[in-house]
Amino acid sequence: MHQAIVVFEVEGGSDKYFDGHRKDTMPIVEAIRAAGWHAEVVYFRPEWREDIFTYVSENFDAYISRVNPGNILGGEKGYFELLTQLSDAGLVGMSTPEEMMAYGAKDALVKLKDTDLVPSDTAAYYDVESFHQAFPTSLSYGERVLKQNRGSTGSGIWRVQIEDKELAASITPGTPLPLDTELKCTEAVDNHTEIRQLGEFMDFCDRYIIGDNGMLVDMRFIPRIIEGEIRILLVGPEPVFVVHKKPAEGADNFSATLFSGAHYSYDTPQAWPELVEMFAAARPEIAEKLGGDNIPLVWTADFMLADDDAGNDTYVLGEINCSCVGFTSELDMGIQEKIAAIAISRVEEKHAALALGDVAS
């Protein structure tokens, strides 16, 4: 065992600081080193893939991915292939492409729609034809939110409502809307609003479906999102803190990103016992629906407040993410030390299991 962990990044992107790293990358590296292991950053470029594989497979026991796949020039395919090669070579992956696709893809919501976590009318569109066929009817039931699979910080996430409120009130649910219906479309990245006709807006959204891993998730708008989004951040199985993200005030504002002016407040998991207990109870079902309980190293679950049939508070899952979770505002909470400890323990557990296997054979 090398007692070494590599941390992958890509060059450029809005998530980088002046030193070229994400602000939360070097704290992880330094925490691993403080624990007595070697750690370093390697930048991924598609043209370096073979050399990176050789260097990393010969010198490291594990990798930690701090790459937003949307920032990779040429797409994520080559990067995912590298990570898979490294796992096949015996390295511990955190997170693996399989985990990113299971926990990080937006259609995780669709896979969970038969649970109490997600509304049953949530849908996903994997091709342009099904989107154009179904969305005009979906919108007849009320406001919707469309979420692209790629991107981050609210890019390509649209709140969609009929512009004419009298028209909206007169529509029979289940009746497809005419393509010239005027819509008010608000993008989560900055809460800007555009007025578009339905047909033209769907044509615009085709870009989110076309290409590798392209798709759109269609989910009902949860009005209480204006009260804020509640994010649980976990390191492995452990909830570390809860972030209450309240959108900036404004009639159509719904985005809970810092870019859009949302206000963040940070709590311990103990401050949200009902939510944390509910999520812990749902974990086995989440694992079953998403294809196995390979818990990501760092991951989040975002919830919105809603009302149950009796008018009591309940929580609706809006997103799970594990591809490249940021935690720059929480570095003083010691999260990097928890990440280092769990990453090292996963490598040690794997090597201990391999050693037992050798003895048994």
Results as ranks from 00 to 15, higher is better:
His2Asp: 00
Ala4Asn: 07
Val7Cys: 08
Glu9Cys: 08
Lys23Ser: 07
Ile32Glu: 06
Ala34Phe: 00
Glu40Lys: 09
Pro46Ile: 00
Arg49Lys: 15
Ile52Gln: 06
Tyr63Lys: 05
Arg66Val: 02
Ile72Thr: 04
Glu81Ala: 15
Ser87Leu: 03
Gly90Glu: 06
Leu91Cys: 10
Val92Leu: 14
Ser95Trp: 01
Pro97Asp: 05
Pro97Trp: 04
Pro97Ala: 10
Glu99Pro: 00
Ala102Asn: 14
Lys106Asp: 01
Lys111Leu: 09
Lys111Glu: 09
Ala123Cys: 02
Tyr125Asn: 06
Gln133Ser: 11
Ala134Lys: 15
Pro136Gly: 07
Pro136Tyr: 10
Gly142Arg: 10
Lys147Ser: 08
Gly154Lys: 11
Ile157Ala: 11
Arg159Lys: 13
Lys165Gly: 01
Pro176Trp: 13
Pro178Phe: 00
Thr181Asn: 08
Asn191Asp: 14
Leu198Ile: 03
Phe201Pro: 00
Phe204Glu: 04
Pro223Gly: 13
Ile230Lys: 15
Leu234Met: 12
Val235Met: 05
Pro237Phe: 08
Glu238Ser: 13
Phe241Asn: 14
Ala248Trp: 02
Tyr266Ala: 02
Ala271Glu: 11
Arg283Phe: 12
Glu288Ser: 10
Ala306Asp: 15
Asp313Met: 11
Leu317Ser: 08
Ile320Asp: 10
Ser329Val: 11
Glu330Leu: 15
Asp332Gln: 08
Gln336Trp: 00
Glu337Leu: 01
Ala340Leu: 04
Ala355His: 14
Val359Asp: 01
